[in-house]
Design a binder for these strands. Sequence first.
RNA 1: GCCGGGGUAGCUCAGCCGGGUAGAGCGCCGGGCUGUUAACCCGGUGGUCGGAGGUUCAAAUCCUCCCCCCGGCGCCA
Length: 434
Amino acid sequence: MREEAVSVNEVFERYDVGSEVFVRGWIHRIFKVGGKIFAWLRDSSGIVQVVFDKGVLNNVDWESIERLSRESSIGVKGVIREDPRAPGGREILASNVVIYGYAPPFPIRGGEDIEYLLDIRHLWLRSRQMTAILKIRHTILQALKEWLVRNGWWEVTPPILTGSAVEGGSTLFEVKYFDKPAYLSQSAQLYLEVLIYSLDKVWSLTPSFRAEKSRTRRHLSEYWHLEIEGAWYDMEDVMKVAEDMVSYAVRKTLEERRKELEFLGRDVKKLEPALQTPYPRITYDEAIEILRRKGFKIEWGEDYGADEEKALTEEFDRPFFVTHFPKKIKAFYMKEDPNRPEVVLGFDLLAPEGYGEIIGGSQREDSYEKLYNRIIQEGLNPKDYEWYLDLRRYGTVPHSGFGLGTERLTMWVAGLEHIRDAIPFPRWRGRIYP
RNA sequence: GCCGGGGUAGCUCAGCCGGGUAGAGCGCCGGGCUGUUAACCCGGUGGUCGGAGGUUCAAAUCCUCCCCCCGGCGCCA
């Protein structure tokens, strides 16, 4: 049977009752009752009930219909009928069927534990929840890229294989690179800093890798990192970029993926405050004050932990910035505040509802001497940073940038419990299959 | 890396404390049902109890070591 196929949602939205259509997809549920067989046919757009009635089918062996099971792939030609007993109020009365593939008993029926589901992730991804999340993820990525391109930012492609440790070192994945060791990139930042000298405003979307054996619901070993870097941007300029981009992504998701958000049970009202910019800004000093008021024992100079971060997010109904961190808890490349040498011009953007950090950024140190001294202070080898230091020797400029964890953003927008569901094939703690 | 929980049938779990030769539900197979919505009813099928040692007449159960998974912390996006 060679027919022009229509999608499931078109059965409900485009065609009238009484039209004959050809739809194809996978059997989501199937019930055999009396003389009829009811199948829910799923494609990427939705689910529609198909009714197989022996008396209506043309030239089809009934036994081949009886053998159909969940996840069998079929094409069905038939007339659209209205019936209140069908999900969505419509069904297709099959007159012709093409069977592409039968399926053995499907291992997912509900109630399976997480380890098992992760082992059969390749099948789990067919679920409607996962499909909804993948669509939301698509829209968020699309929105972020769209915002950047429309606002004059150049997309660039930094390397994933790198020759030396950038920040710590212990959290890098080491790979063989011909006869030398190499590392999978943790961040494109240093390469983006190179490229602003020719393109001014650049961004990249790449996987970043962390070998840390994290044991939390907010960490992945491989995640999709959106990073930007802009010449002539100070910290406040780049924070504006961050809030405009994030609010745009939330707006677009609310406009285009409302159905999916609601299917996941996301309370969309909680996302609406995030449409309004500017986002609140507090300094690290103020964050410490708030935490002390809430009963936390924390000294100025300490980094706040997960519990503290969560408590902070409860103070706001939309994403908010924390700025001006103590120098000693932040990376060597962050620019020292000229008015307060003990803090740096760095910021985090934290999502509300306990989700926490989704962006980390800073104005970068642009003085050769200061950067060199920070490298020494951190116990790093300046030789490893020769090319990076060169950027400050040949026409240095003030510049800033940030990195956004796309799964973290997706997790908050979609209201997910665990970051592993914000990416189709999560990698962490040794999980590498499938 | 640290703390806590767990690994028994294809899946979800009970049995373990007080050792006595492995059980339920679901699935699957067979039968029944003229409209199902995680369908329902009747019958049947199903196990190297995570691995290796040890104690014992006897170990899923007690002891030792190891492996794997989940949740939290640290680290971060």
